[in-house]
Amino acid sequence: MLSEYKAAYKNELKYIKQVLDQPLTEEQIFNVEYIVLQRLIEKKLLLNLVDELNLKIRA
């Protein structure tokens, strides 16, 4: 899970830096950390729920 977080965080920072085209403040970096962590938690909870309900996910 830690490697997944690090990869997601790195990708999100890269994307935001490209969009903003300027350095991020410490507050913005903290917000990115929080958002990435929140997304990963939500993803894990949804996958657990899908598993508990025996649902199938189609691509």
Rank of each mutant, 00 (worst) to 15 (best):
M1N: 09
M1Y: 06
L2S: 12
L2K: 12
L2T: 12
L2V: 13
L2M: 10
L2W: 05
S3G: 08
S3M: 07
S3Q: 13
E4Q: 11
Y5F: 15
Y5A: 07
Y5G: 04
Y5L: 14
K6W: 13
K6I: 08
K6Y: 14
K6S: 13
A7Y: 05
A7I: 05
A7M: 06
A8Q: 06
A8R: 04
A8I: 01
A8L: 00
Y9K: 15
Y9A: 14
Y9D: 07
K10D: 15
K10R: 14
N11D: 13
N11F: 02
N11G: 13
N11A: 14
N11E: 13
E12Y: 04
E12G: 01
E12P: 00
E12D: 06
L13P: 02
L13D: 02
K14H: 10
K14Y: 05
Y15S: 12
Y15V: 02
I16R: 07
I16W: 01
I16L: 11
K17L: 14
K17H: 03
Q18L: 08
Q18E: 13
Q18S: 11
V19T: 06
L20D: 03
L20N: 03
L20C: 01
D21A: 13
Q22W: 00
P23M: 03
P23R: 04
L24Y: 03
T25H: 02
T25G: 03
T25L: 00
T25I: 00
E26W: 00
E26R: 02
E26Q: 05
E26V: 00
Q28W: 00
Q28C: 02
Q28T: 01
I29D: 06
F30N: 12
F30E: 15
F30K: 13
F30T: 08
N31D: 10
N31R: 07
E33G: 06
Y34W: 11
Y34T: 11
Y34M: 11
I35M: 10
I35P: 00
I35S: 10
I35F: 09
V36C: 06
V36I: 07
V36D: 07
L37G: 11
L37Q: 09
L37S: 15
Q38M: 08
Q38H: 11
Q38Y: 08
R39F: 04
R39D: 14
R39C: 05
R39L: 03
R39H: 09
L40R: 04
E42D: 12
K43P: 00
K43S: 09
K43F: 04
K44P: 02
L45F: 10
L45A: 07
L45Q: 12
L46E: 14
L46N: 14
L46D: 09
L46V: 09
L46H: 08
L46Y: 10
N48M: 07
N48V: 02
N48R: 10
L49I: 05
L49A: 15
L49Q: 15
V50E: 04
V50L: 15
V50W: 01
D51W: 03
D51K: 14
D51I: 03
D51T: 13
D51L: 09
D51N: 15
E52C: 04
E52K: 13
E52I: 03
E52W: 02
L53R: 15
N54L: 13
N54C: 07
N54E: 15
L55W: 14
L55F: 15
L55Q: 10
K56V: 15
I57G: 01
R58M: 11
R58E: 15
R58K: 14
R58S: 13
R58Y: 12
A59M: 10
A59L: 12
A59V: 08
A59N: 11
A59F: 08
